[in-house]
Design a protein around this nucleic acid. Structure first.
Lengths: 121, 121
DNA sequence: CAGGATCCGTGACGATACTG
DNA sequence: CAGTATCGTCACGGATCCTG
């Protein structure tokens, strides 16, 4: 999915659909939900670990997505003063409020996968 | 958000994260969830009605998104043979299985909006 | 190790005009 | 009314190189 910070034109949309839009604005992008997911299930991780855990992501994207998530106070960034710098990322309390939502998404996704699998044989 | 049908490289990702990916592949795109949402809450609608209900969407995008949703059997398309052609769209039974997920997304979105609102004053 | 800078292709998305 | 065709833009996102 791809979002633009486009010209809001809220001519007359109900609060329900504005809410959907708010969520999607954050969740959109190939990675954010996956990052949150990983952080939610695996706890505190370093940059390199995330790079490995999140599967296909590249360093540039990971960095960018993490910054956005940090701005939205969904993840916390901690710099450790080790020899070669290390940075740890973890979910904030606020980030945890997404758990129910992520869980529903995961659940539907796995059901959907089953369905697709059945059809393709 | 923006997805590519990129080269699956499932080197070692858990089923959980594959599930998230499956969902996001469908939900990604600025509009799909909103369309499902509208259809879910308002029932059967014609093309023009959707064009109005979904807020900022254009005809081209709406058309394209609907086709994809139809392919995934999430919505049903019905052509009525009226004088000027009319087409009606409605959620399929399968599409209704997304309800819980959409509802969680909506819920979190509205909470998030409250939070943003508080901070901006 | 973390992550910024740069270069670059592809495609998501929009506006407009057109057809049955 | 319900789309399709065409065209253009710019963000997404990958690869590579570079630094503290």
């Amino acid at each position: 999915m791809r979002l633009k910070k486009k010209t809001e034109i809220p001519h007359e949309c109900s609060k329900v659909f504005m809410a959907i839009r708010d969520s999607m604005e954050l969740l959109s992008g190939k990675w954010k939900i996956q990052i949150i997911g990983v952080l939610l299930y695996k706890g505190t991780l370093r940059f390199m670990d995330l790079l490995r855990e999140v599967d296909g992501i590249g360093a540039k994207m990971l960095s960018k997505e993490l910054q956005e998530l940090e701005l939205n106070e969904l993840v916390k960034r901690t710099v450790c003063n080790t020899k070669p710098i290390t940075v740890e990322y973890e979910i904030t309390e606020y980030g945890k409020t997404m758990k129910a939502m992520i869980s529903e998404i995961t659940h539907w996704g796995s059901e959907h996968r089953k369905r697709i699998f059945k059809k393709s044989r």
